[in-house]
Design a protein around this nucleic acid. Structure first.
Lengths: 336, 336
DNA sequence: CGCATTTGAATTATCGTTAACCCACGAACA
DNA sequence: TGTTCGTGGGTTAACGATAATTCAAATGCG
């Protein structure tokens, strides 16, 4: 149905290879035949058959993007940044979203490999158990870059934010705003939440505030857990005057809990989130948050990956940590 | 590096075709060799080379998803629904986001065709000018499904929401809440905004309210335009007591404007959005909105596409309109 | 026992490209 | 005139699978 090089070659009575060379700007071809080929190609509306080309070049110009979820603004923005960054290099992005399902993550990674993607960008959900998977990927020599969540014990490329710094920055901001009874709604046991917690603790100690274990409430990643966690904190005596939250959704849930009991925000309690998701300035009280440079994470990961794919020789793993920045909004807008 | 069928065949001294048949569960193969093949395949960690398979079967088990943007929650949710729906059928999704750039949309569509996707799902930005593109796609006999924005004058599959009904439903809800001076912050000139506007008008007329042209403010798709549009409305005398907005972001912007001049919401002015994006219940005043079944749009479009790909004979185009539903929240919570 | 049929697998021919190598021809040069 | 080049292509053989056909051996059956 669609035209092939063969069609062009037959029409022009030249060999297929000649056509191929013209279309790739390779080899010695006279200006005359070059023009004839190009003209005929345009007439027939010829399009490279990438499947065939990939088979012989062993390059699909396709990268796999494996994410835990899609609707979370963080990952959506990552996807956008990745797609935009690789497009000028001729790559397309195959997405795969494993919905936080550990088995699906592994099977999808294998599917992407079977599709011969040139590289992978992965935000792994349970890094600790993923060593086997990544060994397998390494064996196939498919370059990959981890984002968001690093994996201990694996020499791999990683692009993410400095989570320790996030915890420290967010907490120090609360201290600067005059809070002294500072709580933390932490994230899931697995993963980066531990570092944010550590940063929180360090900030307290650094400023001579003794960490109070009661003020650390374990939780999840969504606003529901933020709401419930905050309810617990409000029952304490004394209740905290500042809360650093694992991420923005949790912070938004926490704010809902605070406003629900008619406390004033930020006068009674200040709240800081993390992530700077795009609607964090549109909630009831615009949220002060620690920006993690989502866009840059995606773009840098993509650039790093493209570079590794292009490189003939294996490069040694690189880790890029993006320094976080505080974004001040009303949820901490009070005098120290 | 990675094992091929050839490797398995050589080891077992059988033909490549035999291996192929075993792995596809096709043709007559004795239980004995079947087991030998499967065992060896597992040992070698064999994976189908989809590039090679696609070349001969002319099926990539890949579909292209062409969206104007990614970070908008509507499209992110579409992407999620599509990916999830097609996965059980063995398909993967190649994304492409054209950032509302008309030329990019066309070139990306062509790129996806060159990659030989089995089908396309497209939310076109300027449907009116896209006839040529879609003719080309049809010539290549690549099935496609339009979502969100239909195209007049093209017999194509389309899955979307009933925009007319959205306008009607949202406006009638305001009327039911006692509003009589009902304004509309409309969307972009191009596209579905016209239908929502028509629905808005019809609802007014149906309930004996004479549409006031001053109460219709043109705008865009984002919260900024909602903010500015609302500012204009607030300058009118009398200012409206209810606003139906093109979509949720616009509505959120409008609410910001209303709260900014210390009006009470919903007592002074009620606001209704459209889209039910996932954070519309977390804004300053939880937003009443018209749900457009985003998830179902994605899922239905994906199912429709898979069906068309599988079908031997061309099917005649189908249009699926999802009936909208009102989701009541505080922004209209007042007695009639 | 002889012939038709089934079973299990091998052969052959693509799919649409690209990589690597080869070759004829004319010009340049000693 | 013979030798060397550079030019403008062509030939051949992959890439890793599948479709279609063929074929030998085993089996069934009268």
């Amino acid at each position: 149905m669609t035209a092939t090089m063969m069609d062009i070659a037959k029409d022009l009575k030249v060999s297929v290879v000649t056509v191929s060379k013209v279309l790739r700007n390779q080899g010695r071809i006279s200006e005359a035949t070059r023009k004839r080929v190009l003209r005929r190609a345009k007439q027939l509306n010829y399009q490279t058959n990438w499947v065939a080309r990939s088979l012989v070049t062993r390059r699909t110009y396709t990268i796999g993007l494996l994410l835990p979820e899609f609707t979370h603004p963080f990952f959506a923005e990552i996807a956008r940044a990745v797609a935009q960054t690789v497009r000028p290099h001729g790559y397309h992005v195959v997405i795969s979203c494993f919905e936080e399902d550990p088995e699906l993550e592994v099977s999808e990674a294998d599917s992407l490999l079977a599709r011969r993607v040139d590289g992978l960008i992965i935000a792994s959900s349970q890094p600790a158990r993923r060593l086997a998977l990544f060994k397998r990927i390494q064996e196939q020599k498919v370059p990959y870059v981890l984002i968001d969540r690093p994996i201990a014990g694996l020499r791999a490329c990683y692009v993410g934010v400095d989570n320790y710094a996030i915890g420290e920055l967010g907490t120090e901001h609360l201290i600067a705003r005059g809070c002294r009874l500072i709580a933390h709604l932490r994230g899931p046991e697995m993963g980066i939440a531990a570092e944010r917690l550590a940063g929180y603790r360090r900030a307290l100690v650094k400023h001579g505030i003794r960490p109070n274990p009661q003020y650390v409430v374990s939780g999840g990643r969504l606003d529901d857990t933020g709401y419930e966690g905050m309810r617990k904190l409000l029952d304490l005596n004394p209740f905290p005057d500042g809360v650093f939250c694992y991420n923005d959704p949790v912070a938004i849930g926490a704010m809902r809990a605070i406003l629900g009991v008619d406390f004033n925000l930020p006068d009674d309690i200040c709240v800081v989130g993390a992530g700077n998701i795009h609607y964090s300035d549109q909630v009831a009280v615009p949220l002060t948050t620690v920006d993690q440079g989502t866009c840059r994470i995606g773009a840098l990961a993509a650039e790093l990956l493209v570079e590794r794919i292009a490189s003939k020789h294996p490069m040694r793993p690189r880790t890029i940590l993006i320094p976080p920045k505080i974004v001040e909004r009303e949820s901490t807008q009070r005098q120290a």
